[in-house]
Design a protein around this nucleic acid. Structure first.
Lengths: 286, 286
DNA sequence: TACTTGATCTCGAGA
DNA sequence: TCTCGAGGTCAAGTA
């Protein structure tokens, strides 16, 4: 096993196949320094909170971020198999293996954690004599809502800590906001004679993307979507048109226009049934 | 720089502060072996596809999965700042630095990639003589839709490849499916005398979660949500009730019931306006 | 493939 | 803090 630990200016520290206690110390150090911590190894994962889940043992990549986020990734999928949102408190400790004590639930882990912390208080960073008989455990918790993620490693292949900086800003185009700007700059794209009067106009059912009137003076409710739309977008538009009709309790004709690159067939039919219209437009022009 | 590369049975390979070409070779090897590959370093990220984005230089953690997924994580947030879904083709190559050739866009990178591949074809794994003047570049692309992610590293702190196995299955409870089962097993939870007749009953507006009748013989449309609901859920329920009314074109009373742990005030009002009902239920009992 | 909807959705803006 | 809607949403089930 080799490391490149030397000074605080080291931006990346890596341990390969560390003992549980060495892993624990390196991770604790990384969390302390507000570094990004990664652990790869065979582990089980338990979650309890908004829902609850259990995951049997397998090789996974765990990332602990300094903002409190935790991510558990398998070798498949874009989404983590388990996670915890930013704002959590990360904790790391060692607990006895099952051969010594069955620890299959949260309560047992709580006891083990208390013991580990008591030990750490007393013994400093002295290596645990039972190092090889200890499991590395990562825990991320938060309140509101009360949630807890527990990752128990049977085997740790690698621990890394990364101290980085990132001031880079992301610029994104092709969003619904771009579609809105495009129409506001050239209202004729929607329909000749259209006049936007407000964006985000509030109704009892929510905010209308663009509120305006056509060249005949009819009120127009416009709902924008950056991509092909289904029935949900039609419902949304209908809800706003409905609310505005009640709100204005006027007899003036009220038009609802859905603006998107395209519509599904079912959505098209729903639009017709409710007297709503569709205009094909993409978020960005060529 | 140290590594623990030795045999194919090594499950994790790590390079610290590698040269661009060493990083390229290790990553190419990892991709070839269908390992999970991670790279940490200072990089810029460009995306073009369903939308388009640019991200200025910063320290980030990049993960390439053997299923084709790519993730770029900063030190903040649960979500990756950039990504690519499973099914993409990953590629790695070196391109000249800007001091030699301005390479600020996709076209230039394409040329550099072609050159790099031509070089690889001819020279095998021989180290590039301009290793220090080369940037490591990761590229993930797919079609339908055409999308491309390009990560250019100015500096690579660590490259790792992980060969793991994961047959562990996730069991999750507290979902909408659990709420449905709970009601089907004990329909009185919804209301005394309720009889479920079908789940996922199709209408022209979509599928109804639970379709049934009350003890008076009225048709009941039930929409389930695992958590507190807003106006969107009310719209959804209304859409189904509406569609069923048209579908059955009957005069029989049709009831719509939204089942969720709780409801927002605005949604509550909308329910009332449309003659819909609410029943408070959680996905799991105590 | 495309469609439809759930999700421990996440995230940001606004009240 | 809660509400509300967008998202390069993702992922699963279905036709």
């Amino acid at each position: 096993m080799t490391t490149s630990r030397s000074t605080q200016s080291v931006r990346a520290v890596t341990l390969e196949r560390p003992t549980s206690t060495a892993a624990r110390d390196a991770i604790a150090d990384g969390l302390e320094r507000e570094a990004l911590v990664t652990v790869f190894g065979r582990c089980t994962v338990d979650y309890e909170g908004r829902a609850s889940s259990q995951l049997a043992a397998g090789d996974r990549h765990v990332m602990l971020k300094p903002d409190g986020a935790a991510l558990v990734h398998t070798d498949e999928g874009q989404q983590p198999v388990n996670w915890q949102p930013p704002g959590c408190a990360h904790d790391v400790f060692c607990e006895p293996t099952r051969s010594e004590a069955e620890s299959d639930d949260f309560d047992k882990s709580e006891k083990a954690k208390d013991a580990a912390e008591a030990d750490a208080d007393g013994g400093g960073s002295v290596a645990d004599p039972n190092a090889d008989a200890a499991l590395l455990v990562l825990e991320s918790t938060r309140s509101t809502p009360e949630e807890r993620l527990l990752v128990r490693f049977q085997d740790v292949l690698q621990v890394s800590t990364f101290a980085g900086t990132d001031e880079g800003e992301l610029t994104l185009s092709g969003t619904e906001a771009d579609l809105r700007e495009r129409i506001l700059e050239n209202p004729d794209l929607l329909e000749s004679g259209f006049t936007p009067l407000a964006t985000e106009r509030d109704t009892p059912a929510g905010a209308i993307d663009i509120y305006g009137e056509d060249d005949a003076g009819n009120t127009v409710v416009v709902e924008l979507k950056r991509r092909r739309v289904g029935p949900d977008a039609v419902s949304q538009l209908r809800r706003y048109v409905d609310a505005l009709e009640r709100d204005l309790h006027a007899d003036a004709t009220l038009r609802g226009i859905l603006v998107a690159p395209s519509v599904t067939e079912r959505a098209q039919r729903l639009l017709g049934e409710h007297g709503l219209e569709f205009v094909s437009l993409e978020p960005t022009g060529e």
